[in-house]
């Protein structure tokens, strides 16, 4: 009897859905992927939907109580839950909103509209990554994700291997590409603390790394702050950089300090 293929469903929360688009754009690899798994739900490319799935691939961050409920249901249905992209892994740029009280943000964005009161669609709380709500089995970081890495993660999951996402800084991949260091060109880059796996795509094209894939397990943040200061970046600018894609780490650090 032919072995049944694992059933995969895609879901999205607060996000641009660009990471799913990356998968829709896998080109020839899409055929290989569909040979490996049955895609039973994928709003961007198909009408059909099924709640019978083994692997849930979830894009987006969690912003509201209703999101939390829906994510928990997905978790219950899935054997494996994959966080897809920066929104799902860390909270991405929308996490910047956590710098301000929620009420203030709602008022700033929507004004004081009485109609929004008690409307669950606008009942925002602080932005969370998926693993702050439910256990996550695998991560595909990045804004957007790297298509090859998605395939690697999928293969690792199906083989039962540990995550192939590296735990060393972007600098490693940047050097392998023989790039001239952006610091040498007078630019400022988050590469030394950012998690590799993207092939240093931004620095390779001359753009500063913003650590969209999050940090390595032990980012040397003090050394990084020293370096940025040496390159004339003010404390405020450093904070701005760290708030862009990696505000989660600022929150976690603050929480840790309170606990200590």
């Amino acid at each position: 009897m032919k072995k049944q293929k694992p059933r995969v469903a895609f879901f999205d929360f607060a996000s641009c859905e660009g990471c799913q688009l990356q998968i829709a754009n896998l080109e020839e690899a899409v055929i290989d992927v569909t040979k490996l798994v049955d895609i039973v739900s994928f709003r961007e490319v198909m009408k059909e939907h099924s709640d019978d799935y083994d692997i849930a691939v979830v894009e987006g961050s969690i912003m509201r109580p209703m999101d939390e409920e829906r994510l928990k249901k997905i978790r219950e249905n899935a054997k494996i839950l994959v966080a897809l992209g920066a929104c799902a892994c860390t909270g991405c740029v929308q996490r910047m909103v956590n710098q301000w009280p929620v009420e203030e943000s709602i008022t700033t964005v929507y004004n004081k509209d009485e109609a929004l009161k008690d409307n669950p669609y606008f009942a925002n709380f602080e932005t969370k990554a998926l693993d702050e709500v439910v256990p996550v089995d695998a991560y595909v970081p990045g804004c957007p994700i790297d298509r090859d890495e998605f395939c690697k993660v999928l293969v690792a999951l199906l083989l039962g291997k540990k995550s192939p996402v590296p735990d060393y800084p972007v600098c490693v991949e940047c050097k392998k590409k023989e790039n001239v260091c952006l610091f040498e060109l007078g630019k400022v880059c988050m590469g030394p603390v950012a998690r590799a796996g993207c092939g240093a795509i931004c620095p390779t094209h001359g753009a500063e790394c913003e650590a969209c894939r999050g940090y390595v397990t032990h980012p040397e943040e003090d050394a990084q702050t020293d370096v940025l200061t040496k390159y004339g970046i003010s404390a405020e600018q450093i904070m701005q950089r760290k708030s862009m894609f990696t505000y989660r780490y600022i929150e976690e650090k603050a929480k840790q300090e309170v606990e200590e």
Partner: peptide
Amino acid sequence: SEKCLSCGTCTSV
């Protein structure tokens, strides 16, 4: 070493 970013640049190059 306290200034080291552990970025691996020195060994790569």
